[in-house]
Nucleic acid binder design. Structure first.
Lengths: 346, 346
DNA sequence: CTGAAAGCGCTTACAG
DNA sequence: CTGAAAGCGCTTACAG
């Protein structure tokens, strides 16, 4: 506050320059760690910066340099465990690198709505990370102008892209494969699948990992039951599956879905794992505390988010090489919800 | 792309001016809906804008005008249901108003770390919304410089602040009061409380609503059992409570905590609601699908987020009056997890 | 109703 | 090693 009671304007590099007795270009050099500044000059400038509480204006930096030190995350959801954890990982890595993080929600997968959101994100001026686990995300990724720095968080690609492609993913296919083999190894004749919505019309990575395990074991293949992302969708899928007495093992697209499936099985009077085994996906915080506790595959979403940011950072800083940032492999966690099938000799 | 293969620079107002045969100031008037522009001129400018695909540079707008049309949300968490839903509500409202939304996570409640995060958020240049449900959030809210537009999302204040204070809240105290009365009305002698971490050293709103109901009923008051935000914390609290045979009713600080409590009760061999009744808080998506399904109090977090943004919008646009934006009242949802206490006459 | 000037707070060459 | 000039893409008074 000054004498007139007006809020004081933040100090600019000119204010610092005046206080330090140098030109403002020299101040610019100091805050940019430019080497050619005499030590004594640098010290005077730094002292002035501290005294005035100077902070470089991010907006002016962006306008003058074209660089922005910000990333905006485009996603169709912020509340589901996987999405929220990825966002958390991105924010963590961005914060460490002094990047600002913005967020844009894709509320619809309609082309015009998606295009508008991509525009909004582009207007922010920095890099983009788009979570492309669903149709809206996939379209958004496709709609990003070619000259914008962007990395996609995608499902396991059908054909592994080269290391130079700005994509990251956890190995969902492998995860589904592992979970299905676990169930099969318990003696189940086959494994049914309650799916999360797919990112495209094509088969999702989780679906294809499940299929592959079935095929290798020569187990009968049934169509996946379509669910949504949440417990309600799992409940609906579970009711459907519960009606079929031949169903003894169910793989669920995520742990929330599994929670709904468990409930539907309970309502239908089918015990878990006595009559039906259930496995989830993600190892969300609640998985270990359900009754029965949930067998699932642990996926490192926050690590995935950090990797996505690291890759984007490589892209915008134009690092010599854009290295793929490895993400930890899925890990099967066996708990109470899976066991051998009921014996048929009665 | 132009002939040299370089990415084309986005059109500026000067490009538009040239194409329309006017000065760039006139273009500025058109994009700002300034009234004094001849209709025919306006039409020519609009045509040029469309043709060139012009979008106003947000960075330049911010630097030149000082206004920013952005809000950054400061929160200690992005994955828990309540926090994530508030964020979703804010984003939704901000998108509708063409505001960009940024996010900053408070990873520690240490003063220096909090101050650094507030600085980062302030550097973004727009308004601030801070979710002050925990110590880190409360400190962040307190550390925001007085000249920055900010609104706090807080617990029910002990003394209702005036309508001019930039705060929003759901009535957690009332919600806890309702849930406790419900349990008491079922015949329980008293209700124990598994608490979420408090925002301050003082008693939280949820705790005081619970206390008030107990007091009015003349029920014995026990100390709340401290939990964390998630299922693991609920499990620990539940184990403690399960050891005491006199415990017949437990109110939990949120539905995730309740999930852990349910598990602990199961492990201890105490049936719900036969021997112990459990009530949660929030009505998260999984509450209806647990077994037993969870009695809880529904809170409108996305509505709260929307209200927070609306209020911030009033503040930055300097609306004539800063009206409190009402949030829907808590609603008790009775499900399977609550019932009468076991009869003692055996 | 429309144009010319100055400036927002920085950076990027260009001089010395 | 340091300073003076021009410019990033807009807005805000100020003229006419």
């Amino acid at each position: 506050m000054n004498m007139t009671g007006h809020t004081k304007r933040p100090a600019s590099i000119r204010d610092v320059a005046r206080a330090a007795g140098v030109s403002y270009q020299t101040v610019s050099r100091v805050i940019n760690d430019h080497p050619s500044v005499k030590q004594s000059t640098r010290e005077r400038v730094v002292a002035a910066i501290d005294e005035l509480g100077f902070r470089r204006n991010a907006t002016a930096l962006a306008l003058a340099s074209g660089r922005t030190k910000s990333v905006t995350v485009l996603t169709s959801n912020t509340t589901h465990y996987g999405y929220a954890s990825i966002l958390q990982g991105i924010e963590e890595a961005a914060r460490a690198a002094s990047y600002a993080v913005g967020i844009g929600v894709l509320e619809s997968d309609e082309d015009s709505a998606v295009a508008a959101e991509v525009q909004r994100a582009a207007d922010a001026g920095g890099g983009l990370i788009v979570i492309a686990y669903d149709p809206a995300g996939v379209r958004a990724l496709g709609a990003v102008p070619g000259d914008l720095p962007v990395v996609g968080v995608v499902e396991t690609p059908a054909t592994p892209p080269g290391g130079d492609r700005p994509w990251v993913w956890t190995d969902d296919r492998e995860a589904a494969y592992q979970a299905t083999r676990h169930l099969l190894s318990l003696g189940h004749e086959t494994v049914h699948y309650a799916a999360i919505p797919s990112s495209t019309r094509r088969t999702s990575a989780r679906t294809s990992g499940w299929r592959q395990a079935l095929r290798e074991a020569g187990a009968p293949e049934h169509r996946p039951v379509q669910g949504s992302w949440g417990p309600a969708g799992g409940h609906a899928a579970g009711r459907q599956l519960a009606q079929d007495p031949s169903v003894t093992a169910i793989l669920c697209g995520n742990d929330d879905l599994a929670l709904g499936v468990l409930r539907a099985l309970y309502e239908a009077g089918r015990s878990v794992p006595g009559e039906v085994s259930v496995a989830g996906f993600d190892d969300a915080p609640h998985a270990a505390y359900l009754t029965p506790s949930l067998t699932t595959v642990r996926l490192d979403f926050t690590g995935l988010g950090r990797a996505a940011f690291a890759l984007l950072h490589d892209v915008v800083e134009e690092s010599a090489r854009i290295a793929p940032h490895p993400v930890s492999v899925p890990e099967l966690v066996v708990r109470e919800s899976s066991g051998p099938p009921p014996s048929t000799d009665h």
